[in-house]
Amino acid sequence: MERWDRPRLIEPTTRLRSSFLAAVAEFRADRDYPTPWFVTDVDAAALADAEAFDTYVARLRAERHETGVRAAGLVPMTTLWWAAGDQMLGRLAIRHRLTRQLEQVGGHIGYDVRPGARRRGHATAMLAAALPVAASLGITRAL
Rank of each mutant, 00 (worst) to 15 (best):
Gly116Val: 01
Tyr33Ser: 14
Leu16Ala: 07
Asp41Leu: 05
Ala58Glu: 11
Val57Asp: 01
Leu98Gly: 08
Gly121Trp: 05
Gly106Cys: 13
Trp4Ala: 15
Arg120Ala: 15
Ala25His: 00
Phe20Gln: 00
Ala135Thr: 04
Gln101Pro: 01
Arg70Lys: 09
Leu131Gly: 10
Met88Pro: 00
Ala46Tyr: 02
Asp32Pro: 01
Ala135Gly: 13
Arg95Tyr: 12
Arg114Lys: 11
Arg64Tyr: 08
Arg17Ala: 00
Trp4Gln: 08
Trp37Lys: 13
Tyr33Ala: 15
Thr67Ser: 15
Thr67Lys: 07
Glu26Ser: 11
Val113Thr: 12
Pro132Glu: 10
Val57Trp: 11
Glu26Cys: 08
Gly106Leu: 09
Arg17Lys: 09
His122Val: 03
Arg64Met: 13
Arg97Met: 06
Ile94Asn: 06
Arg59Glu: 13
Ala128Asn: 11
Asp54Asn: 12
Pro36Ser: 13
Gln87Leu: 14
Arg91Asn: 13
Arg3Ile: 01
Ile10Leu: 13
Val75Cys: 08
Ala29Asn: 06
Glu103His: 06
Ala23Val: 00
Ser18Pro: 02
Ala25Trp: 00
Ala58Val: 02
Gly107Leu: 12
Pro12Val: 04
Trp81Asn: 07
Asp54Pro: 01
Gln101Cys: 04
Gln101Ser: 14
Trp82Glu: 11
Gly85Asn: 05
Ala71Tyr: 03
Arg8Phe: 01
Gln101Leu: 11
Ala117Phe: 06
Gly73Ile: 01
Thr124Gly: 15
Gly116Tyr: 01
Pro36Leu: 12
Ala22Lys: 05
Ser19Cys: 07
Arg17Tyr: 07
Tyr111Lys: 11
Asp49Thr: 03
Leu92Glu: 04
Thr40Ala: 13
Ala71Met: 03
Arg6Cys: 06
Thr99Pro: 00
Glu51Cys: 06
Ile94Ala: 07
Val105Tyr: 15
Thr14Gln: 00
Ala130Gly: 13
Ala52Glu: 07
Gly106Arg: 08
Pro115Gln: 04
Val113Ile: 14
Leu80Pro: 00
Leu21Arg: 10
Gly107Thr: 09
Val75Phe: 02
Arg114Asp: 07
Arg119Thr: 06
Gln104Glu: 12
Leu137Ile: 02
His65Val: 06
Thr124Val: 14
Ile139Val: 09
Pro36Ile: 09
Gln101Ile: 05
Gln104Ile: 14
Thr35His: 03
Phe38Asn: 08
Phe27Cys: 14
Leu131Ala: 14
Thr40Pro: 00
Gly73His: 01
Leu89Met: 13
Ile139Ser: 05
Arg91Asp: 12
Val57Met: 06
Ala46Pro: 09
Arg119Glu: 11
Met77Gln: 10
Met88Cys: 13
Ala84Arg: 04
Pro34Glu: 13
Ala135Pro: 00
Ala117Ser: 12
Trp37Val: 14
Met1Pro: 02
Ala71Gly: 01
Ile10Tyr: 00
Ala93Thr: 08
Gln101His: 14
Leu9Asp: 07
Met88Glu: 12
Asp43Lys: 03
Arg141Ser: 11
Glu51Tyr: 01
Val57Phe: 10
Arg6Leu: 03
Pro115Ala: 08
Pro12Tyr: 09
Gly110Trp: 08
Leu60Val: 04
Pro34Asp: 14
Leu21Ile: 08
Val105Ser: 15
Phe38Ser: 10
Ala117Pro: 06
Ala84Thr: 02
Leu143Trp: 03
Leu47Arg: 06
Val57Cys: 06
Val69Met: 07
Thr67Leu: 09
Arg64Lys: 07
Phe27Tyr: 15
Met77Asp: 08
Ala130Asn: 10
Arg120Ser: 12
Asp54Cys: 12
Ala44Arg: 08
Pro115Met: 04
Ile139Arg: 00
